[in-house]
Design a protein around this nucleic acid. Structure first.
Length: 283
DNA sequence: AACCCGTGGAC
DNA sequence: TGTCCAAGGGT
């Protein structure tokens, strides 16, 4: 549960939600018994809400096909929805104490600097990076678990993406990147655009749907600020928060086609259901 | 390989 | 203010 929540979301934001989920759904079967709408609402603003659906789907599979116990087998973990190479290894290693090669963004960055003399790892995970991580890992199982944890922590706390604190790095003396004079990155990372994107529209729509207990007229989701006034009378009991969330959605600089596309995308991803000219969280 | 998918804190 | 980026996965 925590590993899926931690995919691209910082620990400090995951912690309170994770605790609440454990309290509310202590077992895979308990989570499986919940409806996707409740799951998406409980996900709140962790971001990438499709992860909530995948976690729910994984819990369902675990409940029904694995006797309500999280498999301790790497291949079986990898087969679950929302669990890729990193998460499967992380669970096998950190939950079950097994020896597997863990390669996350922190480990990739540490290795890129320490051994590659690069400021940043490759744009996407390469086979060479996995081979290197595998080769560096201690043979002893217990030690390999600590190794994976340690390298990850080093990247998360010291060898950070921006302004690493090299003066407190335990392997400063052996760092190839330091030896090379801390050269700049050889490429410019493609920043995740946000303003004006479908994602921004989807996010605003999801905020409205999460907050609304009743189906939302599609026209309210698809209109913009110019059309909002004539529709305002259709909001029967908007509530203060709903009105604010709708206002935020309407104020986005998104043309009608983009709003349609965003809603269709949500439906396609199973994050929203649409019928009778209304939209709501998935059934 | 390249691209898509949310959200908010730090700088 | 705007940019960066975070314990990735799926297509």
């Amino acid at each position: 549960m925590s590993e899926i929540m931690l995919q691209q979301t910082p620990v400090v934001r995951v912690l309170p939600v994770w605790r609440a989920w454990l309290d509310r759904w202590p077992t895979p079967a308990a989570l499986a018994a919940a409806g996707p709408a409740d799951v998406v609402r409980a996900w709140g603003r962790l971001g990438y809400p499709r992860r909530a659906l995948r976690l729910h789907a994984a819990a369902t599979r675990i409940a029904h096909q694995h006797r309500n116990e999280v498999p301790n087998n790497h291949a079986q973990l990898l087969d679950l929805p929302g669990i890729g190479s990193y998460t499967a290894a992380a669970v096998a290693v950190f939950a079950f104490g097994q020896r597997h090669t863990v390669v996350d963004t922190n480990i990739r960055r540490v290795h890129a600097r320490l051994f590659g003399a690069k400021a940043l790892p490759a744009k996407s995970l390469t086979a060479a990076e996995t081979r290197l991580a595998d080769r560096l890992m201690p043979k002893d199982t217990e030690l390999s678990v600590k190794w994976n944890q340690s390298v990850m922590e080093l990247g998360a706390l010291v060898c950070t993406a921006r302004s690493p604190t090299c003066h407190e790095c335990p392997v400063f003396e052996q760092c190839a990147w330091i030896a090379a004079g801390r050269p700049e990155p050889d490429y410019v990372p493609k920043g995740q655009s946000w303003h004006g994107t479908d994602r921004q529209v989807r996010g605003a729509m999801m905020a409205v749907l999460r907050h609304s207990s009743d189906p939302v007229p599609v026209s309210l989701l698809l209109t913009d600020r110019s059309g909002a006034e004539q529709l305002a009378t259709r909001i029967e009991n908007p509530g203060r928060d709903s009105a604010e969330l709708l206002a935020r959605l309407w104020s986005l600089p998104a043309p009608p086609e983009q709003r349609e596309r965003a809603l269709d995308g949500l439906v396609k991803d199973g994050l929203a259901s649409r019928r009778d000219n209304t939209a709501s969280l998935p059934d």
